[in-house]
Design a protein around this nucleic acid. Structure first.
Lengths: 207, 207
DNA sequence: CCTTGTGAAAACTTTCACAGCT
DNA sequence: AGCTGTGAAAGTTTTCACAAGG
């Protein structure tokens, strides 16, 4: 399967965007590929090549209009309008994510949170009422939400993922340390903190 | 710079290990590369190739001894003995990580946590006393700890990273959404949840 | 006949180097 | 003169396909 856009390019787009938002906050209106990428430890030609998959957005001899490029990247990524996200599993990690401010910078917002524990249901976390997992399907369908975050323990993650797919969720960010088995039209990403730390220790010990 | 072990191979090692630990718990003593990798959505030849960078651990026509391979992978990764880790920034996310059970499966343990907020210093989270960041250097040096997790806000992350490096930390897992500028003998990994979610949304909207 | 281990080929990604516009 | 945009080259990773061993 030949892909138009390299996977690694896709991963860098939100990083570029966040950095451009920082430049904007610093009052920059114009920036060269070098200025944009040096603080990211990415070579400028990587940035230019990445952008080239989508069009030509700079001015030769000049650089990039910061505000314009922010708008363009938001459109490319698909976050020019706020994206609604649901979260399932309001444990320690889940509630930390609900309160995490980093999502809103990229125009993404956790709008509903669900749990199975009656002790948690009804409580408010950062303005979000925790709802019974049984209500998820109806809400997701009614609100046409297609992005979900899984924060339940590993042994419940597959079950929750199935429920999400049945409800119409099309993209899942999974924090449970388990690989999910899903239809191939569903997009999944994994945040695997223990593996990440393990890889780091490997490098420390071996390289 | 030619590399012995591909970066992606390194990332998969802890994943293999965790899956083998699951197989062991299920009572499996022997497993083929196929049995090991199918639940991970990884082709069996990838697994065999990955292992081949380190040696020959299977029996042709038979498969792999689960317990033996667990020991081997733990040694390869460098977690055959428990690895001590420190954490800085005991906010919502930081305390969730202190309580996270997923690290111990891979023999890693957060043994000290630090913060700058006097309100937090002295409190106990999951058996770990939160200490003043000023005590970090001495403790890290005395205990010869070389892995640290950064969970502070983006604007403090570089400062904490510098402090870690001065204290002798050699590997950093950074949860702050900012790229760190560090000496090149320091290993860094990033867990960038918002970017991960952003990439997922890109795929959803574009692919 | 099953499954591993691995060179070689294919696929993919980054880096180079320079043409082209301002 | 300076910076972008991009084919082509170099580098890296995955997949193929099969020899070798139980």
């Amino acid at each position: 399967m030949k892909r138009y856009i390299p996977e690694d390019t896709i991963k860098r787009l939100p990083v570029y965007l966040r950095n451009l938002l920082n430049l904007k906050k610093e009052g920059k209106f114009l920036a060269s590929s070098k200025e944009i990428t040096v603080p990211l430890n990415i070579p400028p030609e990587q940035f230019r090549k990445d952008l080239s998959y989508f069009g030509q957005f700079g001015k030769r001899g000049v650089g990039y209009d910061v505000n314009n490029l922010i708008n363009i990247l938001e459109k490319i990524i698909g976050i020019d309008k706020e994206i609604k996200v649901i979260l399932v599993g309001v444990g320690r990690l889940g509630s930390a994510l609900i309160r995490y401010k980093g999502f809103s910078i990229l125009n993404m917002k956790i709008v509903y949170a669900f749990d199975i524990d009656p002790q948690k249901i009804g409580k408010i976390v950062d303005g979000i009422e925790i709802k019974n997992i049984g209500e998820m399907e109806e809400i997701v369908k009614k609100e046409k939400i297609d992005v979900g975050i899984i924060c339940v323990p590993a042994n419940n993650a597959q079950e929750i993922a199935n429920l999400m797919v049945n409800s119409g969720i099309k993209a899942i960010l999974n924090f449970a340390p388990v690989v999910l088995n899903l239809p191939k039209d569903i997009f999944v990403s994994y945040v695997d903190m223990a593996s990440e730390l393990g890889s780091l220790i490997f490098k420390l010990k071996n390289l």
